[in-house]
């Protein structure tokens, strides 16, 4: 464990807490893409199958349970909670995310570290996580005004993988046989997708103005 990875995990956790706070405090999920939340639930379920087979550390196991439980709770809330689901922007959240799932599964079958069930699913989860934010970014552009909590949620979500890139650079230089090119390439793509959001987020922060994404 190194500081970059710890900061990455904490940033990721903060993003989830911000989203839970927004939904719980405002009883609303306006501006949040249910499709992105479903993709994240799929990412965690596909990646953390080793939760019961490979014990790495208490921290690792606890965080896996927290990520799986929180992502499923958010999807449940947005689909079933009688008050929250009424504020879901169903007509704006129209990204065909099943294509993302199919493309990532196809890519995972072609490119993975070892052609085994767990490795294919792990690669699938890495590829899917890289593109899972797309429905959310499309929804933000369509819904125009972005409320503060939603903006902060997306910002922390983007920042977490940027910390992971620093972690991979650090591990590359400090560990002998450290090869995670699947994660590195996907992580770079994932963080690059946030580039324009980060730009507009910084502008709104600098001008102390409302976060506006160009349509």
């Amino acid at each position: 464990m190194n500081i970059f990875r710890f900061l990455g995990d904490m940033t990721h956790l903060i993003s989830i807490l911000i989203l839970l706070l927004k939904i719980y405090a405002t009883k609303s999920c306006s501006g949040i893409s249910l499709k992105t939340q479903e993709l994240y639930a799929l990412v965690f379920l596909a990646r953390y199958l080793d939760l019961f087979t490979d014990f790495i550390s208490v921290y690792n196991s606890v965080m896996k349970v927290v990520f799986i439980a929180s992502s499923l709770a958010i999807v449940w809330c947005m689909r079933r909670h009688r008050v929250v689901r009424r504020s879901y922007d169903k007509e704006l959240d129209t990204f065909r995310h099943y294509f993302l799932v199919a493309a990532c599964l196809a890519l995972a079958l072609l490119v993975q570290e070892k052609f085994t069930f767990l490795e294919v699913l792990w690669a699938f989860s890495i590829y899917l996580e890289a593109v899972a934010i797309l429905p959310q970014l499309v929804l933000l552009q369509r819904s125009g005004n972005v409320d503060n909590l939603t903006g902060q949620y997306v910002f922390f979500l983007g920042a977490y993988r940027a910390f992971y890139i620093l972690n991979w650079i650090y591990r590359y230089f400090t560990e002998t046989h450290f090869s995670r090119w699947i994660s590195c390439v996907s992580g770079l793509v994932q963080t690059a997708l946030y580039a324009d959001f980060f730009y507009y987020y910084f502008i709104s922060w600098k001008n102390n103005s409302k976060l506006q994404l160009p349509a």
Partner: peptide
């Protein structure tokens, strides 16, 4: 050895 190096991250 390289294997656990790739799966110890979240």
């Amino acid at each position: 050895a390289s294997n656990e190096g790739t799966k110890d991250e979240l």
